[in-house]
Amino acid sequence: MRLRHLKGWLYLLPALLFLGCFMIYPLVDVLIYSLEEGYNSASQTYFGVGLYNFSYVLHDPYFLQAVKNTLLLVVITVPLSTGLALLISVQLSSIPKLRDLYQTVFFLPYVTNTLAVGLVFMILFKKTPYSDGMINALIHLFGGETVDFMDGPYWAKMLVTCLYTVWIVMPFKILILTSALASVNPDYYKVARVDATPRWRIFTKITLPMISPMIFYLIITGFIGAFKAYSDEVALFGVNLNAAGMNTIVGYVYDMLYGDSGGYPSYASAAALILFAIVLTITVINLLVSRKHVYYA
């Protein structure tokens, strides 16, 4: 019996070692860094232990801006992208003939490099002294006021960021939702039709509950993904996000480690732990809400 236990642990050892080296140890390390006040990475010394790093980060206007940006991004893009993806998937499922073609088209952004998509967005939205960019040309055509989306007012930059994020995350969601929809037994729809169920009721009372686990999965991963946004902003606004006012929490952590203001692993760790706390809270809330509304077969 004991031998068998030993064997089991032995088999688990590689995975445990791996997790220990690359997950547990860094996590503990982050925690330690975040509590060491005045840590100097060159001399590897610190003055004392306490919560000063958290206090500093929470009072840093750049961090507060990053939190605001991130929250806005999360609140706008997660419901929007999930809702749109649901709408598109439902429409796709009702046209079986073209579904494969459209699925490919909608999936293209997913296999395209983030930076390439960013470049395209930049070309579409940018306004230079010499040219207006395509979107501005369109706005102009319809008699609107042109805006520099890449280097202008905050709302314009936020708009582009949200559009970009939605664009990037949609394909995966569409893929997941179309397959979820396809896996619903068509007999449910047949019975519902025979019972004269209105279309909207079929959707809310049958389709949605049936695919609710997948929607829930997309919402949770969507929240987590949006909280960790960084590369998309870099693709749009370059590496100096603070200057553009479009930094995110992860971007702030990165800056604290390696950016111009870099070399502050303690601040970075504190910010990372704050992010962790936020994501954890939101995920727990999600799980609690889902218990009532998600049906698992």
Partner: peptide, 20 residues
């Protein structure tokens, strides 16, 4: 006539009861 206007009831082999 579409099925909903025919006044029929149907039971499928797998019953198709709404599981939720």
């Amino acid at each position: 006539l579409p099925p909903e206007s025919r006044g029929v009831g149907i039971v499928f082999q797998n019953y198709a009861l709404y599981p939720h």
